[in-house]
Structure formats: C-alpha cells, structure tokens
Design a protein around this nucleic acid. Structure first.
Lengths: 116, 116
DNA sequence: GTTAAATATGAGCAGATGTTAATATATGCG
DNA sequence: CGCATATATTAACATCTGCTCATATTTAAC
C-alpha cells in the first residue's frame, strides 16, 4: 500500500500521457461510450458513431495500443471491448467535474446578464 | 442518483475530450504533479520541470483553459494551482491501471523468454 | 522617470494527428 | 476456384501541437 506521490519517472509520465491522450478525441470517446454497453464489432461501431469505416478502424487501433480496448477476432469480423475498467471511473470523474464547471459558467453568465 | 449512461450530446464529448487531451502530455502531467504539493508560481514550475519559461507558460495557459488549473496573479508573479480535485482521482486511476498493464506485459515477456 | 525581474505572446518550424478515398488483406460462401 | 463481406492499411492532405527564439507586457525597485 505504498501511498501515492512518489514522483513518477519520466518514462511513466509518457505512458500515462498516452493513456489520457487516447481519450482526448471526441470520436474516440464516442466509441468508448458505445462499448460501455458491451463488446461490438467494427460495423456496429461505424453505424453507431456515424464515422467512416477507415477512420473508425484507425481510432480503434489507437485505443487498443493505448490499452483502453481489447480486440477479439472471430471469423470475418473483429470485436472490440473495453479492456480497462478504470475507464468507467475516469469518465464519471470527468463528467462530474465538467458538470460543476458548466454550472459555474452558467451561473456566471446569468449574473452577467442581470447586470445589464 | 440518476445513474449514468445517457449518451452525452456531441458538444459535451468535445469538452470532455479537451479535458483528457489537456492531461495527454508528459510535460503538462509533470506540471500538474508538481502542483499536487500546492500552489506554485511560474518560476518555480520552470525550475521543477526543467522546461523553458515560454513553453511552461504556454502549457499553463492550456491547462487553465481546460479547467485543470486556476491562475492567481499577485504583484509581479502568477501563481497556479489545481482547480479541479477530480484530477487526483484521475491520476490514481490511470496510474493503477497502468501498473496492472505493465505487470501483465512483464509477465508475458518473461514467459516468452522461457520459451526459447 | 530608468532599470530589472516575472510572465506572456508572436512567429517560425518540425513533427504528430485526424480525415478521406482508394486499395489490400483476410475470411466466408457457393 | 470466383465473388462478396468485414476489416485493415496506404497515401495524401490539412490541421493541430509542442518547441524555441525573440520580443512585448506588466510590476517592482530604485
């Protein structure tokens, strides 16, 4: 249980950064979100996200190499699923903090509006 | 306690992605990590991270506009601090999942090595 | 006022990233 | 075998990103 803030060596920083970066794109988030409901193949993901097949395929590759998803091939098709359960926590955290931020912004805007 | 997975509208996805992307860079992670110990001014951050002043300044700006940090100006200097407590949770989650992944990799490599 | 210190910003550049159309590589089926 | 379907990959392109140097801006100190 060695607790926490031993500063991460630079190599680890790179890996962590890559992990975050993998989630730093709207289309990839859309993919991940779709997979929360469970494993899907590429075709389904293309339909759900509305993206082009080539592009989705690329993003999937990136998500796999960042360790966010895993790939399972079966016959003709490839199925992708969330590999890393920590993703759920991540999204909740970010969404939560975003809500708060938006709430603050909204309030600020209202105040500004009242001022005039 | 409205639980969770109503699909986020595309606008929100962009915001969330920006949030993740802000953490998707090693130098910015270094900055954030340094700030876990508490508020620091630019000069200190430059020393701690070993980056160039101009570059650090740019990253700080990015972190602020992503809502990760807040800026407080006092006299000559500018102090930055972590704005969003969810960051702590994020880092713990990612570091944890990374440890697991690395452990698996390490084990896999060992197995491969034994095979020859 | 002048000068120095702290921070931010503009411009240029190299390299990464996301998108797309076209093509390649499987795999399944008849 | 030939043909269709599912997925991956290549190449080309525009855009974004991070880095650096030089310079602007702000504030403090004299």
């Amino acid at each position: 249980m060695k607790s926490s803030h031993a500063l991460p060596p630079d190599e680890a920083l790179v890996l962590i950064a890559r992990h975050f970066a993998a989630l730093g794109d709207p289309l990839r988030l859309k993919i991940v979100h779709a997979l929360i409901a469970g494993e899907k193949n590429v075709g389904e993901l293309v339909r759900v996200t509305g993206g082009l097949q080539a592009n989705i395929s690329r993003h999937l590759h990136k998500l796999v190499s960042a360790g966010v998803l895993v790939r399972r091939k079966q016959g003709n098709q490839a199925f992708y699923a969330i590999a890393d359960p920590s993703i759920y926590g991540l999204c909740e955290l970010v969404c939560g903090s975003l809500e708060q931020r938006l709430a603050k912004l909204t309030k600020a805007i209202k105040v500004t509006a009242k001022r005039r």
